[in-house]
Design a protein around this nucleic acid. Structure first.
Lengths: 348, 348
DNA sequence: CGCGGCAGTGGAATCCGTTCCACTGGATGC
DNA sequence: GCATCCAGTGGAACGGATTCCACTGCCGCG
């Protein structure tokens, strides 16, 4: 029952310490313009009372909330959680709190989440737009006058800064790599193909294939283990069985890998496998899987850094800094050669 | 330049709509006690102005912030991110915002994070205590009069509710399973052994081993790939090579698996492997790895549910509900039989 | 000696929703 | 017909920290 249940307030501290509220406020904000004696005394009172400033009251007055919002499809997805962790670190370094909300790629959730964050008056936003072309999203982001950075996918037709992996080039590199190693019938497993990233990767694949005068082969049917088995069986039994598989995302890669295992199809002897996006166990499974690796942490980190830069500029110039064209950053991907695609892995 | 840069306020809405602030407040809170005509009119004005209530001002008056805090070691760890996602869902269902902060298991970060959350006047807390016996932590949690639920690890010597997996029984089941299948020299790979969960698992292992009159063999040295190779080589070259390995956590399981692969040691013929904590690819690698599975989502979900129950009780009774003894919930783990430990996996 | 200036301090207005209370006018009850 | 009640509404105090401005001493300089 020692619990007070109600937080002490600044003026209670002031009264108990026999000083004015101004002084207490100064003490909790660094103690400038306060005599050392008063400082120590007030600090002691704060300690004994267990006083903690009320953020809501602060926010109400000053205009920075030291809070930024991150809107992602899922926390459980390693890609996004790594981004989140990197952004967190930057936020902390800037003395800010990161609030993460999840959309499950549903534009309605996305709008809800954004509304909540805006109510909380976040200083800025990092967002993975569920639908790159949503009007509602663009309108909302245009209306709130805070810095926004998109990651993983840009927001179409807008002045919003973005940090994404160069999916197109990555896919080209991957495809070219397979071509260079003599593969001729390279099938591209897209999984769901509505997302921006997947479409970029599809384009990259097509470009490389066409440049080599080969035939692009797309399969959009693989969305789980079962469909992977089915699709791979169909492809192998077909008239022109593929000699390589390029899977455009993690889950698809794993489904394909699993199916190939099940059919006892040797990788890379019978079929090569190359995935887009790295995952921890890609190097542990046998054969280890070659992949295009995205700079996950860098995406989160850069996005947060750009956000805080914008915040800083805004603070300096007073107005919603938009002088320089919104930056569209594309980060290089990296081909990780392992054993699933016909090239000797580097000695390990 | 269409941007306003400053959010419209409730009284601006009121003025523009030609009504009182009270009425606008009622409209944004559901529209009770407002005539349909006024309601529609005010709604229209809100729409055109793009008005969004300022959460800070709300918080300042009413006492609920509709915000709960989650303090975990890492977002990138699948175990915790799954917990977080489950807790998120419950929070959303209760119309609350979940704020996730990460400690990297550092007690200092933990205290910092808690302070930030308390400043923000979260209604309640879910926490993975970095150090179960920290005085500072207990004191802080005792002082703030808000509901707290610990997950994964209980807070020692306190009245704080907790939701954890039954690590001890899980480890006993695992060990017993190995014993039942004829393994006699079962080595236990602990990895870092300071954490509560690991210690519980160690105890479970020891109990089962001793009940079967076997000799417990602990190895605490495995913390990365290299050390796993070293340790396993040493064990196999030793006088009494083990016939089974029980790894107490994910990373250790993977390191051990990798090392066994490298040495071309057949699982489970030469050595059985059983891990604690499931991971997505445990079923994909060859051989697939048997594990003790924790009810990850359930931990997050139950914790959040208990928190909201406490919040509800508190709301009903007015005071920090602590009538019934703080609940310590232990959730059952589950043995997932796959092929790495000498038992035929269920037909799949 | 007198005045500017500065360190140290406090009073009070301010930020923006919420909510208690008071008020109006029309409908209902006896 | 008069008292009651209620739906609908607005005024204004309130919550807690920040911050502008004003005030008091005291030092130093001319």
């Amino acid at each position: 029952m020692a619990k007070t249940n109600t937080h002490p307030t600044l003026s209670q501290v002031a009264r108990k310490a026999g000083v004015g509220t101004t002084t207490v406020s100064r003490v909790i904000n660094g103690g400038d313009r306060v005599s050392p004696k008063t400082l120590a005394h007030v600090r002691r009172v704060i300690e004994t009372l267990g006083y903690m400033p009320n953020q809501a009251a602060r926010t109400l007055k000053g205009h920075r909330t030291k809070t930024i919002g991150l809107v992602i499809p899922s926390i459980a997805d390693p890609f996004f959680s790594s981004c989140a962790e990197a952004a967190q670190a930057v936020a902390r370094a800037n003395d800010s709190l990161l609030i993460v909300t999840v959309t499950a790629n549903d534009p309605r959730n996305e709008l809800d989440n954004l509304n909540v964050l805006i109510r909380h008056r976040v200083d800025g936003l990092i967002i993975v737009p569920a639908d790159s072309h949503s009007h509602a999203l663009r309108d909302l982001l245009n209306r709130v006058a805070i810095p926004v950075v998109a990651i993983d996918r840009p927001v179409g037709n807008s002045m919003i800064a973005s940090v994404v992996a160069d999916n197109l080039k990555g896919a080209m590199t991957a495809t070219q790599h397979l071509i260079d190693h003599g593969y001729k019938r390279i099938v591209c497993l897209t999984g769901e193909s509505t997302l921006y990233t997947i479409r970029e990767r599809m384009t990259g694949y097509r470009k490389a294939i066409e440049a080599a005068h080969l035939t692009p082969i797309f399969d959009t049917s693989v969305t789980d283990y079962r469909s992977a088995e089915y699709a791979i069986k169909a492809l192998l039994d077909g008239p022109n069985p593929p000699d390589a598989i390029f899977a455009l995302k993690n889950s698809t890669t794993i489904y394909a890998f699993e199916a190939l295992q099940k059919f006892n199809i040797a990788m890379p002897q019978a079929i090569a496998l190359l995935g887009f996006d790295d995952f921890e166990l890609a190097s542990t499974v046998r054969p280890s899987i070659s992949v295009i690796q995205q700079p996950v942490e860098e995406i989160g980190r850069r996005a947060a850094e750009i956000l805080f830069e914008q915040l800083f500029d805004e603070h300096r110039t007073g107005s919603p800094a938009s002088s320089k064209q919104a930056r569209q950053i594309k980060l290089k991907t990296c081909l990780i050669q392992r054993s699933s695609c016909g090239c000797t892995p580097p000695i390990n």
